[in-house]
Computed example of a mutant assay.
Amino acid sequence: MENQATQLLLIEDEKAFAVLLESYLQQHGNHVTTRYSLQGGIEQTLLKEFDCIIVDIGLPDGSGLELIRRVKSRRLTSSLIIISARNTLEDKIIGLDLGADDYLIKPFDLPELNARLKSVMRRRYAQQDAPLIFDKLVLYPATGQVKVDQRPLLLTQKEYELLFFFMTNPDQLLDKLTIAKQVWGYNMDLASNDILYTHMRNIRKKFVDAGCPEYIHTRYGLGYILTMA
Rank of each mutant, 00 (worst) to 15 (best):
R70E: 12
I42A: 11
K92W: 04
Q27K: 12
E90V: 05
H28S: 09
K15S: 12
A18S: 15
D51Y: 04
I42W: 06
D101Q: 04
D13Q: 07
P111Y: 00
S79K: 15
E14L: 05
G29S: 07
E90F: 03
L98D: 00
D109I: 03
K106Q: 07
L117F: 08
I68C: 14
L25A: 04
T34E: 04
L117A: 14
Y24R: 05
F50D: 00
F108Q: 10
A18K: 07
I82E: 00
E22I: 02
D61N: 07
D91E: 08
I94A: 10
G41C: 04
L46N: 10
Q27A: 10
G62R: 12
L104G: 02
R86G: 03
L20A: 14
L20G: 09
L21R: 11
T45P: 05
R74F: 03
Q26F: 00
S73Y: 01
I54P: 11
F108P: 15
L98I: 07
A115I: 04
V19S: 11
A85E: 02
E12S: 00
P111M: 02
T33G: 01
T45R: 06
L117Y: 06
G29F: 03
R75K: 15
T33I: 14
L46D: 11
D97A: 08
A16C: 05
D102S: 14
P60R: 02
L76R: 08
N30Y: 01
S63R: 08
L110K: 06
R70F: 01
L76M: 13
K72C: 03
A16Q: 13
S23K: 11
L104T: 03
V55P: 15
G64W: 06
E49Y: 05
L67G: 10
Q27M: 10
S23Q: 12
D101T: 02
Q44M: 14
E112M: 06
D91R: 05
Y36Q: 09
A100S: 11
E12P: 14
R75M: 10
Y24W: 05
D97V: 05
S84A: 01
D91Q: 05
L25H: 09
K15R: 14
T34W: 08
L89G: 04
G95D: 04
A100C: 06
L96I: 05
T33L: 07
Y24A: 11
D101N: 15
I42Q: 08
I54V: 15
L67C: 13
A115D: 08
I93G: 04
D61T: 01
T34H: 08
